[in-house]
């Protein structure tokens, strides 16, 4: 059984942390404004945001990680859709039911992702944890798991005068 750091309660999370945690989910709106129809833009933005914010606190780290990870599947699905559509348009492939089925699935996935992200952003702003299926557990481990070397004191560099 792996050990985890204790979870901060809402009253222990500062306003700045809450806003930084919420920001990860809201990056996609900025990315949508800047990047559509290129689905990869929001992923790049979220990764940059993650690396800037992950050191701030475990709470922020968790939400940023969850935001980045949960974007991966939809971003890949969107990229495949764009690629598939371009092939049909320019390389003479047919629109079959498989394509239309995939299109509907991708639209639904994006809508769900959108809805869950907004809800997660609201929760983060309230200082609460919110776990997506699958990505929630991984992000929790990333941000809160106690690493093996974490309790070993680092060899001190600055020492008191001898």
């Amino acid at each position: 059984m792996s050990k985890h750091h204790s979870l901060p309660q809402p009253d222990e999370v500062s306003i700045e942390e809450r806003e930084d945690a919420m920001g990860g989910y809201l990056m996609m709106f900025a990315a949508i404004a800047a990047g559509l129809p290129l689905p990869i833009i929001n992923l790049i933005a979220a990764v940059i945001y993650y690396y800037i914010n992950r050191k701030k606190s475990r709470f922020v780290h968790f939400h940023s990680a969850q935001s980045v990870l949960s974007q991966l599947p939809t971003s890949i699905m969107n990229a495949v859709l764009v690629f598939w559509t371009l092939r049909i348009l320019f390389y003479d492939y047919e629109y079959g039911n498989t394509y239309w089925g995939y299109l509907v699935t991708v639209i639904l996935a994006n809508l769900f992702y959108f809805g869950f992200s907004i809800w997660a952003a609201i929760k983060a702003r309230r200082g609460q944890m919110y776990y997506f299926i699958f990505f929630g557990r991984i992000s929790y481990d990333i941000a809160f798991k106690i690493r093996e070397n974490e309790n070993n004191p680092v060899e001190a560099v600055n020492l008191p005068p001898k």
Binding site: P73, N97, T98, W100, G101, Y102, V104, T105, L108, A109, I133, F134
Partner: peptide, 16 residues
């Protein structure tokens, strides 16, 4: 998640 993805895709492929 994979099952949901595959299920929805299959559903809308067979029931356009």
């Amino acid at each position: 998640l994979l099952a949901i993805f595959a299920g929805i895709w299959a559903l809308f492929t067979w029931v356009p």
